[in-house]
Design a protein around this nucleic acid. Structure first.
Lengths: 125, 125
DNA sequence: TTCACTCTACGAAGCAGTTCGTAGTCATCG
DNA sequence: CGATGACTACGAACTGCTTCGTAGAGTGAA
């Protein structure tokens, strides 16, 4: 499979619904996004996304059911990589530095970072 | 000033040149991007970016000199925030987690992260 | 059957981003 | 002066994204 193009904003909004709600119909996605009269817009987007391979469609019932083709994590990593390339000279670490400056972390998140740090030092031994 | 729209890919490529080379002429930017026959394309982009307020133009000489209107850091943070909003439910910390998974860090970067971690724990006291 | 409702499909418009060709201006050199 | 070359300005084409309107098919109730 060729390198998939980065999802657009509207596509990402839909993927977010699919990731959090699981496989969904057009109506379910449209209602979750909360916008009025968005039904055919969401339908069209899902059709396009099916063509791009971003989502998969179950057509066994008359009302089709869509699900994200790639996991949230995998997509997030792709986007991080993409941003690192475009704005940080390819350095994910420099991206991390700026992200750390943006917002304080919760205790859980701090713990995760500490854990990651320990692993890094482990590997360096 | 209203919230500036996120720079596009082509705009970011130009900003990267301006950040690393400092104020530059169209020709200097065009040569740095390395693409053939890109001159008028770069010129047009710089004109558009001037209109958007992304760059500032010194017209005192016949050959104009452009410089980035915002710092690299500020722009990077904006982009991080934007990506956090679009793909991480607004959580920069979750973005950090994925970014850490993407690539190993250098010793310097590890040290910076450790320093940041210490500051966080300080504030929590 | 007929009506109302829901669904899919799709065309088309509008807009932004990107690229390129062309025109016109200005400075310099012979 | 006249030619050459570098510069700015700008229109126009092309593409991709997003939105919406409309058509047509399936479903089920009266």
């Amino acid at each position: 499979m060729a390198a998939p193009r980065r999802p657009t904003d509207a596509e990402l909004a839909i993927l977010r619904v699919l990731w959090s709600q699981g496989p969904s119909t057009v109506r379910e996605v449209a209602e979750e996004t909360g916008r009025e009269g968005a039904y055919t817009t969401v339908l069209k987007l899902l059709q396009i996304m099916t063509g791009k391979g971003l989502v998969r469609r179950d057509e066994s019932a008359r009302t089709h059911v869509y699900r994200a083709a790639r996991s949230e994590r995998a997509t997030q990593r792709q986007l991080v990589r993409d941003l690192a390339d475009r704005a940080f000279g390819g350095s994910a670490s420099r991206l991390v530095m700026q992200a750390l400056a943006v917002k304080k972390a919760s205790p859980d998140e701090l713990a995760e970072i500490r854990k990651w740090l320990a692993e890094q030092e482990q590997e360096r031994a």
